[in-house]
Amino acid sequence: MPTTTSTQRAGTPGGAADAGSAGSAGAVVASGLVKHYGSRAAVTGLDLVAPAGAITALLGPNGAGKTTTVECCEGLRRPDGGTVRVLGLDPVRDARRLRPRVGVMLQDGGLPSTVPAGEALRHLAAMYARPRDLGELSERLGLTAFARTQVRRLSGGQRQRLALAAAVIGRPEVVFLDEPSAGMDPQARLAVWELVRELRAQGVTIVLTTHQMAEAEALADHVVVVDRGAVLAAGTTAHIVGDAGAIRITLRPPDGASSTRSDEAHAASLSASLAARLLGGDGPGVTTTATAGVLEVRGAADPDLLHEITGWAVREDVLLASVTCGRRTLEDVFLDLTGRDLR
């Protein structure tokens, strides 16, 4: 049974010495990336590896440093420290060689407002030796209906789809998508996801930023949780969420009981009990949660484990007011990592 190494804390960034040769390790590699805006630090020693041919999601709250990181990878910003390599090349120094091989979708669109949508796309296609077929791509993303409409008159979702088309028109090997489905209706989002998955099937490396958990869970092979300019956790979605699943229990002391044991004490007691009774070794981890009285047991939700939990409740004389079995969601993990405070 796999133990739940649910998250892997990124260590402090070491030297960036090995980044240059890491081309085979990842299509996009950032090591110890630092970027300041004036006195404000936007990125503080960020490490990122986006495997080739996979979808990597940079997940984090607004202001976490996602866009700055991506812009450093696109060559739009020069890092103050650390290194960035895309396809083994430096995005600033080797920009000329890299630009034909990289597609970019900016968060604010980047398309001229008074130009008809179709013309804006044709303009970008002219920059590449072998662009994709305009008709086919327009059909795929439903652009044909508004090809003659000026960009400024498009809805948010239409504009996003056009920007996505612009990012892939040159048949790039690496695509950076900054908040690709912001402002889209569900149908448009599905069309975008479908295109992104198809790109992956063709071997394209995709790096996207999002603060939508559903998007990261649905699309990404690899999730990098970013907050305050650094990586909090990185790995496959399953790795981050914890493949083994979890059981959430809500404790209620029996009526009239005067015991006011803390959640922490309950968690320690349950953890010790499970470790002792389930096949030796380390038992499933038990943690408290943000909700008072709710504990989370991380481990495969099988009948044995459930039996041990209820046995513990009998011995400890606590009532299990609810038991929920299932996988943790990325949202749980995300909130655990980035905190629950509003910013």
């Binding site: 630009r99 900016l106 604010d108 980047g110 398309l111 001229p112 407002s113 590449y128 040159g170």
Partner: peptide, 16 residues
């Protein structure tokens, strides 16, 4: 074009 991000997007294409 600068406000709308057009300059930045074009800078990432082969146009540079």
């Amino acid at each position: 074009d600068r406000r709308n991000g057009v300059l930045r997007l074009l800078a990432t294409t082969p146009l540079g």
